[in-house]
Amino acid sequence: MNLVLFLLSGVFLPLFPLSWLFNRLVASAPGGWAKALSILVLPQLGVLLLWASGPWFSGISNPWHGLVAALALCTAILYAFRAISVREITIWARFMATSGLALAWLQVLAGVSVAQVQLSLLAWSIPGALLCLWAGELARRMGGAYIGLSGGVARVLPRLSALLATGALAATATPVFPGFFALLKTMGTLPAGWILFLLPVLFLWGWSIGRFLQDLLFGVYRGTAVEDLGTAGTWAGALVLVVFAITGLFFWGATWTVS
């Protein structure tokens, strides 16, 4: 039974190859809201299942810990690497979230408390969920959430593009968003030798966000005229991002990482 719970937690708290199922589940959710909700809820469920399988998990020997940690790092690297060639925003958000969420396993293995792991998951889930929502808005206006096909989306949809760009930055551990501090926290749990394998994740995220922004912002738009996001929607999105950043700065950064 515990093994079943452990495997299920590997699906929801994505760990390759079970992460494939996590992505399949999120992809099959209908609409932006459902996708966003699944990115937020499934990893939390994964942590709870993992803790429910606690006696089995804490009973395994250290070599298995090393194996799971290596698999978590490989999952993070794999999905970050796969994200560099993605141009559809929902898929990009899924891959980036999977890459970040996999790192939570390293905190679990280091004995970080459940509450802190759950907070850490939010650092990756929230930007992924927001991107899924805004990708839905983009798809409603342009028929698809593909960037780089028409180019110059920022000129015709400045508000939505600003939210997408900022959300993408939050998803790639940019200071002052919580992802930056969650990554530092993860780094703090690793021995020096293991950090060398975490750094490629950071590099691939940097590459991925560079390509994302290049496709989203630059070029001359040649499609039909589209209406931008409304003022209320823009302010609501901006408010969520600002609160998220302030929480990162003063909560994650000030107390959590330093402790």
């Binding site: 780094m187 950090i195 750094l199 950071l202 940097g206 590459w207 630059f218």
Partner: peptide, 27 residues
């Protein structure tokens, strides 16, 4: 100047080199 794809391309070159240089400082 977002109208010029070249501006985006070269900004990306700068960003990716900087990110490469960030890694040793993290370590």
């Amino acid at each position: 100047d977002t109208d010029r794809p070249a501006a985006g391309r070269y900004a990306f070159w700068t960003q990716i080199t900087y990110r490469f240089g960030d890694l040793p400082l993290w370590m």
